[in-house]
């Protein structure tokens, strides 16, 4: 009996060990799931979107098995550093402040940031124009950085998700939002909820806050994975996979120049 039990325990332990060894082969990718059209959740709970398709294409290109791990935006970098996943593919802009914590691949797309407000809004997106107004951004984004740097006197509301920002814009609690132009256009303005709203002013520019586009974040020193991603990004750009995914969501090439 004892022997049998021991054998069973050994088998379980071995199984767990093999399981762990296999699990290491799987690349875990942190995604957000509340940032349409880049990543959003379907009614059945599946995460879909541009980021997800790019992640899958890169994994296929690298010949690795991947799983998507959902994570709230403001805990994304801490979770990567805590090894909850191995890379972040969540429209994360490559900025100096973030580079202190993680390493980035080359960009996989680059789109500008813009304001959105109610159609016919009678103010300009300048420090004077926004005086007395309330602007909403997602917490921990390049847009928070930009607002705090250039509009220190404007009241800023911070939200957990871009969806929550848009919700409060519709409710009328905030006068304008600052976010990625594509995310605002496809994720909000073109939807039913976004009726009656429009872009306010042009592209906002600040390389220090906005960085050089969205890249894939990996843990500091994880050069092997970073290089593999870089190669895969170049490969899907060259072989037309990127274009196919791009065209599924957007009318123009969002890779930028």
């Amino acid at each position: 009996m004892k022997k049998k039990l021991f054998g069973l325990a050994a088998a379980i332990a071995l199984g767990a060990f093999v399981g762990a060894a296999q699990a290491e082969e799987v690349l875990r990718i942190g995604v957000e799931g509340a940032y349409p059209p880049f990543s959003e959740k379907t009614a059945s709970g599946e995460v879909v979107g541009f980021d997800i398709d790019i992640a899958k294409a890169l994994c296929a290109e690298m010949g690795r098995k991947c799983v998507m791990v959902e994570q709230d935006w403001d805990g994304m970098i801490p979770a990567l550093r805590a090894r909850k996943f191995d890379a972040i593919i969540a429209s994360m802009s490559i900025t100096e402040e973030r580079k202190k914590k993680v390493d980035f691949t080359n960009k996989y797309y680059n789109t500008p940031a813009r304001f959105v407000a109610r159609k016919g809004a009678d103010f300009e997106p300048t420090p004077e124009g926004l005086k007395g107004k309330v602007v909403g951004v997602q917490r921990g984004t390049i847009h928070q950085c930009y607002m705090e740097k250039h509009f220190p006197d404007v009241k800023l509301n911070l939200y957990d998700t871009q969806d929550a920002v848009n919700l409060d814009l519709v409710a009328g609690r905030i006068d304008a939002v600052l976010a990625d132009a594509i995310a605002l256009d496809d994720g909000f303005l073109k939807t039913e909820r976004g009726k009656g709203f429009a872009f306010l002013g042009g592209d906002q520019i600040d390389p220090q806050c906005f960085g050089e586009g969205a890249g894939i974040a990996v843990r500091k020193g994880d050069d092997k994975l970073r290089e593999a991603f870089n190669k895969a990004i170049a490969a899907i750009r060259a072989n037309g996979t990127y274009k196919k995914i791009n065209d599924k969501y957007f009318a123009f090439d969002i890779y930028g120049d």
Binding site: P78, R98, G140
Partner: peptide, 23 residues
């Protein structure tokens, strides 16, 4: 803090978000 108010926890989360800190 989940409804945009800057209370003590809101301050903590803002600090974390600004510098990408964990705790």
């Amino acid at each position: 803090s989940v409804i945009t108010l800057m209370d003590i926890l809101g301050a903590g989360r803002t600090l974390n978000a600004r510098y990408y800190l964990a705790f």
